[in-house]
């Protein structure tokens, strides 16, 4: 089973997207009342993008190139849908979700080797 890899891909993608959310003007205002400075936001966007791309590696490793990319896109869709709903209904929980996802990613990375 690829459960370790699946978990790693999902948590990485979730953390990456969450970081990207906080980097976006609209959501940053929604979350922090006051938008952080542009440099911070840009860094977050970069970190988020890196996390998303990093997630591609275990996906391809576990499923091969073609299915791996499909799986990666699938997790992207799920994670972004979750965050979309979260921002609509429970925006305060975003930081919590980010922390859980980031910890989960670390844990899964150790698990997956």
């Amino acid at each position: 089973m690829n459960l370790g890899a699946d978990l790693l891909v999902f948590t990485l993608v979730l953390a990456g997207f969450a970081a990207m959310c906080t980097s976006m003007d609209r959501h940053a205002k929604q979350l922090f009342r006051q938008s952080p400075p542009p440099t911070v936001r840009r860094l977050r966007a970069l970190a988020g993008a890196v996390a998303l791309l990093l997630a591609l590696a275990p996906a391809i490793d576990a499923y091969g190139l073609s299915v791996g990319i499909a799986v990666w896109f699938g997790f992207l869709a799920i994670a972004s849908t979750l965050l979309c709903l979260l921002l609509a209904y429970r925006p305060q929980a975003l930081q919590l979700v980010f922390s859980i996802a980031a910890t989960g990613a670390l844990f899964a990375a150790l698990l997956d080797g």
Binding site: M24, T81, A88, Y89
Partner: peptide
């Protein structure tokens, strides 16, 4: 990209547009 995570519930047509865009964009590759 700007509207990527945007869903505004209970706003009539705006919500439907958001929902339509979100379901389309978030799994667009699929």
């Amino acid at each position: 990209f700007k509207d990527f995570f945007t869903f505004r519930p209970a706003r009539g047509k705006r919500s439907w547009i958001d929902a339509h865009a979100a379901t389309s964009v978030l799994s667009l590759p699929f």
